[in-house]
Design a protein around this nucleic acid. Structure first.
Lengths: 159, 159
DNA sequence: AGATTTAGTTGGTGTCACGTACTAATATAG
DNA sequence: CTATATTAGTACGTGACACCAACTAAATCT
């Protein structure tokens, strides 16, 4: 049922970006749901793939309240996806780690999500795809800089 | 505190897109929160800016369950942001409309959010910005097509 | 008219995020 | 070296949100 489609109107850059973000989020959420995990939980696991943060650091990384992280990690742990251990350096701190099960799950969801995105970007030329990635990355790097966060995970522990 | 920054690593296209979507969502959510509305409610109002859908159409547009829309619209109405009226054509249907207050609120949030995005994209060249918008739009149009949804709002009533 | 489909609401459940109030461990002061 | 302040994390209560299943009422199809 393609409509007459006379004037292919245009979105503003703001709208385009907003809508794109809704689309990507919805895609990720669908994938997560299929694996019986929520978007937040998926995000947590994704962050833990290459980090071993304390609860406090997690709160910063996810931009959530401490108490929200407690609940999130609590639910993750109840499902056997993460582990909590006391920090050897600071008796107050708790280190959060992925279990093998958690790692497997996040890998699976990430793979499926990757395929979804592939498909979403399928209509683009290779050039456009590369451009999109590069531009997005530039925006992210700039923003990470202004927030004082390291975009590239890197670290096992904060030392 | 700029770190040595030796190897500017790269994100995969999937990661870049995912992270960008989280960034945009967080930005929008912050703005919405400042106006005392949730992200979902903001999205609802945004959709209603140029549409006058039934509850059912709303559910489709937002990809939510009917009952979720009931709750959302219920809360919006309780705050005087939307109105419900029975459809003259179909006694089962309910048309949802913005009140003046709702329209003012969404305009304000949209304006502020727009400024946020401006700033986020501030580091890009005009060419890159245009490219980002255009590529994003292409992805959106393709997806809307496969979902049978009209991306460009257009309609006042479904007739 | 009678059966079926469609639009919407109701009620119950689980997730999630927040704020406040609390405990325990570390850091700072005197 | 105790006394206080700060920091990390948890507990609890609240509200928003989204889902499903069950229901009512209007429209459509025999």
């Amino acid at each position: 049922m393609t409509s007459p489609d006379q004037t292919p109107r245009h979105l503003t850059d703001v709208d385009a970006l907003a809508q794109l973000s809704f689309l990507v989020q919805a895609t990720l959420e669908r994938r997560a749901a299929r694996a019986e995990v929520s978007l937040s939980l998926t995000r947590l696991l994704g962050i833990l793939r290459d980090r071993r943060p304390t609860m406090y650091q997690l709160a910063q990384l996810m931009d959530l309240d401490k108490s929200s992280v407690t609940g999130l990690v609590e639910r993750a742990e109840r499902r056997g996806l993460t582990l909590r251990s006391r920090s050897p350096h600071d008796g107050r701190s708790v280190l959060v780690t992925l279990t093998e099960e958690g790692r497997a799950l996040v890998a699976q969801v990430a793979a499926e999500f990757g395929r979804d995105i592939e498909q979403l970007l399928g209509a683009l030329t290779a050039t456009d795809r590369a451009a999109l990635t590069e531009i997005a990355e530039r925006v992210l790097i700039t923003d990470a800089g202004t927030r004082g966060i390291d975009l590239f995970a890197t670290e096992q522990s904060g030392t």
